[in-house]
């Protein structure tokens, strides 16, 4: 999708401009609904302490950093993680999450002399890799995340590091920044081409979730 096409689509979603030229009409109600609907992460949540928020944000940024494109923090991932941990996790998952976070809060300053979010990128990566090594036998890493689960749901047995990774990756690629600036987004393709040239650097489409 080129920029002109993207702007056309974005314009349609927001204002309905040039809808008839493109051969279809979105109803006024639908436009109003979509334009008014807030992002999921726009809502408030009061679950983590500020110190915990800094740790989660730093962990998310280690997983999906800002490069020449937005990273996890740019995409609102820390808020997404807090929202899901607060409102969506079941008791077992929340207990795992809180225990993992407590470990990060207490152990890391003891071992490294400072909170996780104040460590160097190398130290942060070392800590995350150690967590991943310790979790390596979790079936979260199996093909399709454990063969029995629906990816739209969750693996309740996932260790803390896997929880944070999954919510970071999911939250990032379903965010506006991740979906439009890292992936390619086009809600109104208008035609189908089954043989679009793909360059080695091209991103996948954002779009239908499984």
């Amino acid at each position: 999708m080129n920029r002109r096409e993207f702007l056309q689509c974005a314009a349609l979603l927001v204002t309905g401009a040039s809808a008839s030229q493109l051969g279809f009409t979105l109803s006024q109600e639908q436009q109003a609904y979509l334009a008014k609907a807030p992002d999921y992460t726009a809502q408030g949540v009061d679950y983590l302490t500020d110190a915990q928020r800094r740790i989660i944000a730093a962990m998310a940024e280690v997983i999906i950093p800002r490069t020449d494109t937005p990273g996890a923090i740019d995409a609102g991932v820390p808020k997404f993680i807090e929202l899901l941990a607060a409102n969506w996790f079941n008791d077992q998952e929340r207990a795992t999450f809180e225990a993992g976070l407590a470990d990060m809060e207490t152990r890391i300053p003891r071992e490294y002399g400072a909170p996780f979010d104040q460590l160097s990128p190398g130290q942060q990566l070392e800590i995350m890799e150690a967590l991943e090594d310790a979790a390596a036998d979790s079936d979260w890493y199996d093909l399709a995340g454990g063969s029995t689960r629906d990816f739209r749901e969750f693996n309740s047995d996932a260790p803390f590091i896997c929880q944070v990774k999954e919510l970071t990756i999911w939250g990032f690629f379903t965010s506006e920044a991740g979906g439009t600036q890292v992936l390619r987004y086009n809600p109104m393709p208008m035609h189908f081409d089954g043989d679009l040239p793909l360059s080695p650097d091209d991103s996948a489409w954002s779009g239908s979730l499984l």
Binding site: E29, Y33, L34, A37, Y40, L84, R152, S175, P187, S206
Partner: peptide, 26 residues
């Protein structure tokens, strides 16, 4: 249900969908 205006989720981008597409399991 009204044709068009009743299709509340049509063309909704993932970032506007509850839980960004994760499912309200309970």
């Amino acid at each position: 249900l009204q044709h068009g205006s009743g299709y509340l989720g049509e063309h909704a981008p993932p970032w506007k969908v509850p839980l960004q597409g994760k499912r309200p399991r309970e």
